[in-house]
């Protein structure tokens, strides 16, 4: 523990400072909402990292899964009177199940075929929630979704929402960390790195791809449910194709296969989206620019940039130290 703290002291300090800053800002209800949304989108970007970063399966249809989580949680509570916390869990489970079902055919596809299928999946879900008016309210959506109730603690303000969501994000990150360094995570990475060799070592490739989809869908569904309870209102426009692209941009911009990358990516992209709200027509264009920026200049995202920067500084410092030492030696000889 002590070693962990001293090794990561700057990261920890930064985390504490960020938490404090967010708590201060969250006193304003609009800021609290944004901070809560940071958490929700960070969960989605994290879930995409499990699927894309670690297992190498691309998905441009996660908005569909996000929608399934949001609508199923909201409908369970409104139409069937299920307690909101249970709805949240069930919504996540339903999303995981649907994610696994779509993954059974999808896991046989690779690269652009898979991404086409997932785009189609996202569109199908979008069309269903738009047209199945009796259940989903069509384009008007669902209003008056009750507050989330966590064992008697009613999440009736954006501030409370932000706190609950960030706690859940921390749990999601812990779960992701544990999965990745386990036997299952090793199988995921092995599939990404070399499918043939993975199969030759006894890994049931299809089973693990389906599992990765299910895990990712469960997390995204959870985020969807949180979104529904936080906003109290959902409509199809939140779940369109652009949203799927946004999720992917968040992940790529932040940096894949890291814990902090997707979180940072989610915060930066969402901030950008809020600040430039007036340009919402050009959203797609802006995401595309972000993605090109990442692909051309820092393929490992912000985290990759930070890491290579750190290595460069270390190198410079050690070089300088060596120069001083050599200089000192020369002086001594003279």
């Amino acid at each position: 523990m002590k070693a962990f703290i001293s090794k990561n002291k700057w990261t920890l300090l930064l985390l504490i400072a960020a938490t404090a800053l967010m708590l201060v800002l969250a006193q304003k209800t609009y800021y609290a909402l944004i901070i809560a949304l940071f958490g929700i989108y960070a969960i989605v970007a994290t879930s995409l990292d499990v699927l894309f970063g670690y297992t190498g399966q691309i998905s441009l249809g996660h908005a569909g899964l996000f929608a399934i989580g949001a609508y199923s949680s909201a409908l369970l509570t409104i139409k069937f009177g299920v307690p909101s916390l249970l709805s949240l869990v069930l919504g996540s489970a339903i999303t995981a199940l649907i994610g696994a079902l779509i993954a059974i055919p999808a896991s046989k596809l690779v690269k652009h075929f898979l991404s086409l299928l997932m785009i189609a999946f996202g569109q199908i879900i979008y069309l269903i929630i738009n047209s199945w008016t009796e259940v989903t309210g069509g384009s008007l959506g669902i209003m008056n979704i009750p507050y989330l109730n966590v064992f008697g603690f009613e999440v009736n303000s954006n501030l409370k929402g932000a706190i609950v969501i960030w706690v859940i994000l921390a749990i999601v990150l812990l779960v992701k960390h544990r999965i990745i360094r386990s036997r299952v995570g090793n199988a995921f990475i092995a599939i990404r790195e070399n499918t043939v060799a993975a199969r030759g070592l006894g890994i049931d490739v299809q089973k693990y791809k389906v599992l990765a989809f299910a895990v990712s869908a469960a997390m995204t569904g959870l985020a969807g449910g949180l979104y529904a309870f936080l906003r109290g209102f959902i409509s199809p426009e939140t779940f369109n194709g652009t949203q799927s692209v946004l999720f992917m941009t968040m992940l790529l911009f932040g940096g894949i296969t890291t814990l902090a990358g997707p979180v940072i990516g989610a915060i930066v992209l969402l901030l950008f989206k809020e600040v430039f709200q007036t340009f919402s027509t050009y959203q797609g264009l802006i995401y595309a620019l972000f993605m090109l920026l990442v692909l051309f200049f820092f393929p490992n995202g912000i985290i990759g940039l930070y890491k290579s920067g750190k290595t460069a500084v270390m190198k410079l410092l050690s070089k300088r130290a060596e120069a001083t030492r050599n200089g000192g030696a020369e002086n001594a000889e003279n």
Partner: peptide, 9 residues
């Protein structure tokens, strides 16, 4: 015959 390692692991 052609090495099949997980290169980034």
């Amino acid at each position: 015959q052609n090495i099949n390692l997980f290169k980034k692991m």
